[in-house]
């Protein structure tokens, strides 16, 4: 793999006595979009939390840009250029959209750069410009998601961790957000680690994918090839070969080939 930006090696993360991540390893090359697919409770969010420093792994290492970051506080990790957009948006509801965006650039001192980035963000999400003076709490779910991504962008991150950006959004909005994630990656060179349940969308925007089941990675490949795998089609894309009766409810056994 070309230039590795993030390297996660054999991490184990616990919630109390429960081991949520059971020896997970993966890499994210610089400039790529990598996705981790998995069902509810597979451990996707825990992986992002472990990478961004919200949780510390009991075991294993996380290296970002060649330097270990596991065990660092989340703000230190963020200052190294890793922006975490958590699931469920978590914008500041009482601040306006513009204030929320300024919060994203809190650590920066280059006023001109900030202004340019603000403009770029409005360019990606014109609706945020229109709502700039509105309180973030009054935005729709989709708009809040756009705001959360934009706020992360304001820190000029090298890499973004996106946790279920499609959650609870209308299909048209999901499509729009994924398109812009692709553009941000191409135009601004931001590396993306994307965690998703919407496998279809994720596999179309990302370059490389891992499948996580109960805390372990069971499959990895380029997204193109993943889209062709029987197990992915059946369990993540909901595509089934029609049976002789036309419908089929039963599922095959997973083999991860």
């Amino acid at each position: 793999m070309a230039d590795t930006l993030l390297e996660v090696s054999n991490i184990e993360t616990y919630y109390g006595p429960i081991m949520a991540i059971r020896g997970v390893s993966f890499t994210v090359p610089r400039g790529a979009i990598v996705t981790i697919l998995g069902a509810n409770g597979a451990g996707k969010t825990t992986i992002l939390r472990t990478v961004s420093g919200v949780m510390d792994p009991q075991k294993g290492t996380v290296a970002f840009d060649g330097r270990p970051i596991h065990g660092l506080d989340p703000d230190k990790v963020a200052r190294r250029g890793l922006a975490h957009v958590p699931e469920g948006r978590e914008v500041f509801p009482l601040l306006t959209v513009r204030e929320n965006l300024r919060m994203g650039a809190d650590a920066r001192r280059d006023a001109a750069g900030i202004a340019a980035d603000l403009e770029a963000v409005y360019e990606y999400f014109p609706v945020l410009r229109a709502r700039a003076e509105q309180r973030a709490g009054s935005l729709s779910g989709g708009e809040q998601q756009m705001l959360a991504i934009s706020r992360a962008l304001m820190a000029r991150p090298t890499m973004m961790l996106l946790d279920e950006p499609s959650l609870g959004l209308a299909p048209r909005l999901v499509k729009e957000i994924f398109e812009i994630i692709g553009r941000i990656n191409r135009e601004r060179g931001v590396t993306v680690l994307l965690v998703e349940q919407n496998a279809n969308m994720a596999l179309h925007v990302a370059h490389y994918g891992y499948v996580l089941e109960v805390g372990r990675i069971v499959m990895e490949d380029t997204c193109e090839r993943l889209l062709e795998k029987e197990d992915i089609k059946e369990f993540y894309l909901g595509v089934k070969d029609a049976s002789i009766r036309g419908t089929r409810r039963w599922k095959r056994k997973k083999t991860w080939r």
Binding site: S9, E12, R22, S25, R216, I217, M219, E220, W256
Partner: peptide
């Protein structure tokens, strides 16, 4: 074997690896 790999800090992703 997965348990073993995990205990020894052996990185692996899928079954083949």
């Amino acid at each position: 074997v997965a348990q073993f790999a995990q205990e020894r800090n052996v990185p692996f992703t899928n079954f083949a690896s």
